[in-house]
């Protein structure tokens, strides 16, 4: 285990943002930041990669659309349904495309259902969120009003001195918890 971890606690999102910027400038290794709410611009400062959640939603949506089309095609046009042909409003099931207007609603709903649910599941999986998952924040106040930065350090004294100038309200080592 790496014990060279220091926690700096802040009580304001703007101060946090400028401090993290300064830490990055000083080439400190910022391991993680815990915040009570999404701080606008923090991901840029931390140089986090752009998340690809939206892309997954798009892919899942395409899968849903394909699934819906195949399902409806099988049931209404090609498959076993043939033995029970139905003529609804003068529209017998000749081809998929001639009946498409009445398939659109279900195709749309299936697209949304796949995109919405599978993306949410991906989100839970990627963030390791599930019932029974344990909280990892070192300080419970980070869900209330405090912002915690986890930094790897070489020399505690030096880092502490620097962190104090940035406006941290509490600084402590990981082991003296």
């Amino acid at each position: 285990m790496n014990n060279n971890i220091v926690y700096a606690l802040y009580d304001d999102d703007d101060i946090l943002l400028t401090s993290v910027k300064k830490m990055k400038e000083k080439n400190l290794n910022v391991k993680e930041v815990y915040t009570p709410f999404p701080v606008h611009g923090l991901d840029k400062v931390l140089e986090l990669k752009e998340t690809r959640m939206a892309i997954t939603a798009f892919i899942y949506g395409c899968i849903g659309l394909t699934f819906g089309s195949v399902l409806i095609y099988y049931i209404m046009i090609s498959g076993e349904y043939k033995s029970w042909p139905m003529n609804i409003g003068g529209k017998p099931n000749f081809t998929f495309f001639k009946n498409l207007p009445s398939f659109v609603p279900v195709l749309f709903e299936l697209t949304v259902m796949f995109a919405g649910h599978l993306m949410s599941l991906t989100y839970f999986y990627r963030c390791k969120l599930f019932p029974g998952s344990q909280e990892t924040s070192p300080d419970p106040r980070t869900t209330d009003d405090k912002f915690l930065v986890e930094i790897e350090h070489e020399n505690f004294k030096e880092v502490e001195k620097f962190l104090k100038t940035t406006g941290a309200i509490e600084i402590k080592k990981k082991d003296d918890k």
Binding site: Y34, M119, K128, S133, S137, T142, T143
Partner: peptide
């Protein structure tokens, strides 16, 4: 709460997921 800790990366995903939803 599914073990939520408020990590920066999680918030980033959270915001995108909310927007897409």
């Amino acid at each position: 709460s599914f073990g939520w800790s408020g990590r920066a990366k999680h918030w980033q995903r959270f915001e995108e997921v909310s927007l897409v939803l």
